[in-house]
C-alpha cells in the first residue's frame, strides 16, 4: 500500500521527479530510492512507483526485470555479491565462491535462515585490479583469500 511509505521517501521522490521534464523519466532514480528504503522492489513497490510516476505497472516491471541491480525479493542484512567474471575467475574466484557457500551453508541466490546473509554472483564489479573481488552491500573487498573472507564475515557477525 502506498500509504506505508515514509514521508521522507515521498519528499525525495518529489525532488527527483522535479528534475525531469517528464515524470516517467525519473523511473530509474525513483526505483533506486524505493529500493534503498524498502530493500527490494516487490509488486507492491512496482505499483507504488507506477502510480507516483503516472505509468502502467507493466512499464515499471519491464525496467525492474531488465536491470539485475533491482532486487525483486528482500535480501539479508548483508548482500554479498561475488564477481564471477574473467579476472576474478583466473585468480581463484571459483573455489572461493565454493568456500563462501560452504561457510554460509547456502547456495547462490539464497539467504541464510537467520536472514543475515544473501549470496549472489555478478558478472563484473569493475575492480579487476583487486581480483578476486566481493561486494558486501556497498563496500568492496578485494584480493580475497580464505582468511580474508573469514575476517570479513567475522566483522559482520
Amino acid at each position: 500500500m502506498s500509504s506505508e511509505y515514509s514521508s521522507s521517501l515521498r519528499r525525495k521522490i518529489d525532488e527527483v521527479v522535479a528534475r525531469y521534464p517528464k515524470k516517467g523519466a525519473a523511473l530509474l532514480p525513483v526505483l533506486h530510492l524505493v529500493q534503498r528504503e524498502v530493500g527490494c522492489i516487490s509488486p507492491e513497490e512496482e505499483r507504488f512507483v507506477a502510480q507516483v510516476l503516472g505509468l502502467k505497472p507493466m512499464k515499471v516491471r519491464e525496467v525492474v526485470t531488465f536491470y539485475t541491480m533491482f532486487l525483486r525479493r528482500p535480501v539479508g542484512k548483508y548482500y554479498l555479491q561475488a564477481c564471477s567474471n574473467l579476472s576474478c575467475s583466473l585468480l581463484g574466484a571459483g573455489p572461493l565462491l565454493d568456500y563462501l557457500q560452504q561457510k554460509l551453508g547456502i547456495g547462490i541466490g539464497e539467504t541464510t535462515a537467520d536472514g543475515r546473509f544473501t549470496l549472489s554472483t555478478v558478472e563484473c564489479l569493475g575492480a579487476c585490479e583487486q581480483a578476486p573481488c566481493l561486494m558486501v552491500n556497498f563496500d568492496y573487498h578485494g584480493q580475497l583469500d580464505r582468511e580474508k573472507i573469514d575476517r570479513i564475515l567475522e566483522s559482520l557477525e
Binding site: 502502467k56 507493466m58 512499464k59 516491471r61 519491464e62 526485470t65 531488465f66
Partner: peptide, 10 residues
C-alpha cells in the same frame, strides 16, 4: 493504449 504487456528480463 492499455499497455498491459511488455518484455520482461533481457
Amino acid at each position: 493504449k492499455t499497455e498491459d504487456a511488455g518484455i520482461l528480463n533481457r
